[in-house]
Amino acid sequence: MTRSPSTASADVPGIPLDAAEFYRTLEESNSREWWVAHKERYAVSVREPMAHLGDVLTEEFGEPKLFRPNRDVRFSKDKSPYKNHQGLFVPTSARMGWYVQIGADGLRTAGGFYASASDQVARYRTSVADDIAGDRLVAVVATLSDNGFEIGGDVLATRPRGIPADHPRLELLRHRTLTASRDHGTPEWLESDEVADRVRSDWVALRPLVEWCDQYVGASELPGRR
């Protein structure tokens, strides 16, 4: 007898490949009706495996947060009700820490500084401009880049006000947020317990970036932004 995707996925020790297929199909049929009809599949192929992954990594990295599948469409022109991926985040300070997601393109790991309150951006740029803290970040970013991580974040198109055009760390100073990520796609090991080892390895590599952000940026101290 042919098993349904949700039933077949229940026996997978890692993240089922059906999780990526789930999101590929969702991209074509992003509606409440489709979601309700596939709610059990989401639970078995996506939510439960991701929650288990977070549980496995909790002792080493901290308590994870599994994001809700619903999009906040209040201020968006795109009214699609559901996200095209399932994310899991382990915070150190508010909106900075380690991240992993499964989506149509497969598994992505990431980490860094995701918040952009004005006081956080100011502390970030002050630290990057400092020769000791700034050079430390340059080394961290270079190591991550050399090891296959993509450096990203919210970046200004021009240089920040007051920063000279020849500043040695201009590219980093243009950032309002700073992250590093790696896309793994949908390899065979995704369905095995090796997925936890792979995510752990990436998060260990990302630890210097997370710790730098936590030390020099930290949580916002503005009212309502903690």
Rank of each mutant, 00 (worst) to 15 (best):
M1E: 13
T2I: 09
R3A: 12
P5K: 12
A8F: 12
V12S: 04
V12E: 10
I15H: 05
L17V: 03
A19R: 10
A20P: 00
A20W: 04
Y23K: 01
Y23W: 05
Y23G: 01
Y23T: 00
E28L: 13
E28Q: 10
S31P: 03
R32P: 01
E33P: 01
H38T: 11
A43T: 13
A43W: 11
V44Q: 01
S45T: 13
V46T: 05
V46F: 01
R47P: 01
E48W: 09
H52D: 15
L53H: 07
D55Y: 11
T58N: 04
T58Q: 13
F61D: 05
G62I: 06
E63L: 15
K65A: 06
F67H: 09
F67A: 05
P69D: 06
R71M: 06
D72V: 05
D78T: 02
D78S: 04
K79T: 01
K79M: 08
S80F: 09
P81R: 12
P81Q: 09
Y82A: 00
K83L: 08
L88I: 13
L88H: 05
F89D: 02
F89I: 12
T92D: 07
A94E: 13
A94R: 12
W98Q: 02
W98R: 03
Y99W: 14
Y99M: 00
V100L: 01
Q101C: 04
R108P: 01
T109K: 00
G111S: 09
A115F: 05
Q120T: 06
V121Q: 02
Y124F: 08
R125H: 07
R125S: 04
T126R: 15
S127K: 11
S127C: 04
A129C: 00
D130R: 10
D131V: 09
G134M: 03
G134P: 00
R136S: 10
V138C: 05
V141I: 14
A142D: 14
A142N: 11
N147M: 07
G148I: 08
E150T: 15
G153R: 08
D154T: 14
V155D: 00
V155N: 02
P160M: 10
G162I: 06
I163W: 02
A165F: 06
A165T: 14
A165W: 10
D166N: 15
H167D: 10
P168F: 12
P168H: 14
E171N: 12
E171P: 00
R174E: 02
R174W: 03
T179C: 00
S181A: 13
D183Y: 04
H184K: 05
H184E: 05
E188A: 15
L190G: 00
D193F: 11
A196F: 11
R198V: 15
D202Q: 10
W203P: 00
V204E: 13
V204K: 15
A205F: 07
A205N: 03
R207E: 08
L209W: 04
C213I: 06
D214K: 08
Q215F: 13
Q215A: 14
Y216C: 01
V217M: 04
V217T: 10
A219Q: 07
E221S: 09
L222H: 05
